[in-house]
Design a protein around this nucleic acid. Sequence first.
DNA 1: GTGGTATATTCGAATGTTAGAATATACTGA
DNA 2: TCAGTATATTCTAACATTCGAATATACCAC
Lengths: 116, 116
Amino acid sequence: MSDALRTFKASIFHALSHPTRIAIVEELREGELSAGAIVHRLKLEQANASQHFAVLRAKNIVTARKDGNQVFYAVRDPLLIEVLDVMRRYFHAHVQEALAMLKEIDESEGERPSIE
Amino acid sequence: MSDALRTFKASIFHALSHPTRIAIVEELREGELSAGAIVHRLKLEQANASQHFAVLRAKNIVTARKDGNQVFYAVRDPLLIEVLDVMRRYFHAHVQEALAMLKEIDESEGERPSIE
DNA sequence: GTGGTATATTCGAATGTTAGAATATACTGA
DNA sequence: TCAGTATATTCTAACATTCGAATATACCAC
């Protein structure tokens, strides 16, 4: 496999390597939503959300459909949802250590982990 | 889904979001290899490779088995290979734009892209 | 036109990631 | 023990990413 191809793959993973962007893609699992709806559901800062949308757009992970005042986002390819599904199975297969990892993250942030 | 779980998923993606680490995991697709073998096959700097191994170990993406002088790495869970397989399909479904992305990367690096 | 709403972009400071050099550790064989 | 090999860690400078604040753009209703 060429290094350029690996760079492409890595760039897709990179686009998904932020909790907020994962959350956005998961929100879009059932279909398109307006930017505002996502901001509201995930309680994000508008500017910050828009930055994350830009990352997802740049990698063609989502499509943006403009309708009047609003922009509706959708996951472009269901394969990516499939990737997230496999990740979910991966998570369930390793709950124990996932919990440990969450706890570590937790302890440095002062919040309690909760599973799904 | 809890924010902590998203953080967990994001951290796995993050571990895979570097071309060298993708390359390492793909090398381990068929089974375990020594650190040295991977360094040799991928023509990596020893120290740099070791740093990437550390990232993959920290996320439990690979296991490390020490045998005498050497350390043998293996992908711990085939589910991750499955993730890479879905990504491969994703890639094939979007060769066109992948090519465009590779070309862009290419133009800023002075190399020609080649597909798999 | 003006005012209001929805979204995007730019900027800056804090933080995180990277590669490679140097160094450290661990094991083996003589 | 010592020399050699395999791997890991630490350090540092360059670079990228993140957030929130401020600002800009686009659209709609009046």
